[in-house]
Design a protein around this nucleic acid. Structure first.
Lengths: 168, 168
DNA sequence: TCACAGTTGTTCAATCTTCAAGAACGACCG
DNA sequence: CGGTCGTTCTTGAAGATTGAACAACTGTGA
């Protein structure tokens, strides 16, 4: 008996030089961008990026209302986290909870007028930040490439629906 | 003359349809990937991705030692956050603090043998996760595109006078 | 030598996130 | 009905992060 055993982890395929470089660049860039947007929104709108995203979702929903679970899924956060987040936004007066008429377990998050106002005030600065960091620096081809790359990534990470990609 | 006034925020340039789509895809994909890696490492190595990154940095440093500030800069986190993180890793026995001989204010973070061992155990699974989510799904051209896009992004977000130690 | 401004790392309080329950309700089946 | 299981949302405690404040130290210039 020697090296070869029944171990499932045979030979880890490490990253090539190009892949390593791409991975480092990815981590570097995404971290910087996330920090940048978080700071910008915290400064200008008094909330982190995730919370801003919740308001955006609500603003686009019919009657500015959305079920908690649906909102959590769209924002890719847990229901628990959403519960805390909505509690905070409710304390700010930007969101209000309502009972769901069709399901007594359910709750609707409702973007208030005040919340809509905050969102409208914050949006231009936020878009400018995204532009300045990303879209004003990329060529149209690169924007397309980025979208396609992200689509492929998301395809392989889809948590629900068919769990086909989870090999093994 | 009409609504136009002296407002400094003249006309926010919103995102085009292509840009909106790319931005949504970006947020979706990066969130999913980060969550995926965080869970994988939390499950297999008992620490989040950021902490794993710290161990990687240390493992590559001369004598497995690094100054706190340098480590924080490389990992793109604040010194405060690093302080807490190292305290936690120290509690696990994976890192130890040492006084810096040349600067009495300074501290060196030192990756212990035990920490190195944990890292070596976790690395294959982590690489597999990165591969499975990203590099095994992208064409070589896309890997190059991604690297270039991220390089441009990072260029525009570089916090200060740029020293680029991660560029070879 | 002596300010003195700048750096280094830690700490505190406020905030945010996660994880493990748990209460309330709906859907289904006998 | 009544029982059972799954869903929906909330809660509380532990852990993590942030930003400001702080003590200790360095290096520079007068």
């Amino acid at each position: 008996m020697d090296g070869m055993s029944t171990e499932p982890a045979a030979e880890p395929r490490w990253l090539s030089d190009e892949e390593q470089y791409a991975w480092q660049s990815y981590l570097h860039a995404t971290t910087l961008l996330e920090d940048h947007l978080d700071r910008q929104l915290q400064r200008d709108a008094g909330m982190p990026h995730v919370y801003y995203g919740l308001l955006v979702q609500l603003s686009r929903a019919p009657r500015r209302r959305m079920r908690m679970t649906e909102l959590a899924q769209n924002a890719k956060i847990t229901r628990s986290r959403l519960s805390h987040a909505i509690a905070r936004l409710e304390k700010n007066g930007w969101v209000r909870r309502e009972n769901c008429p069709s399901d007594k377990r359910g709750q609707l998050a409702h973007l208030t007028d005040e919340g809509m106002h905050v969102l409208e005030k914050a949006a231009p600065g936020h878009v400018a930040a995204v532009r300045g960091a990303l879209f004003d620096r990329l060529s149209p081809e690169q924007v397309g490439q980025l979208a396609e790359i992200c689509r492929v990534m998301a395809d392989g990470l889809q948590p629900k629906g068919a769990d086909l990609p989870w090999l093994r």
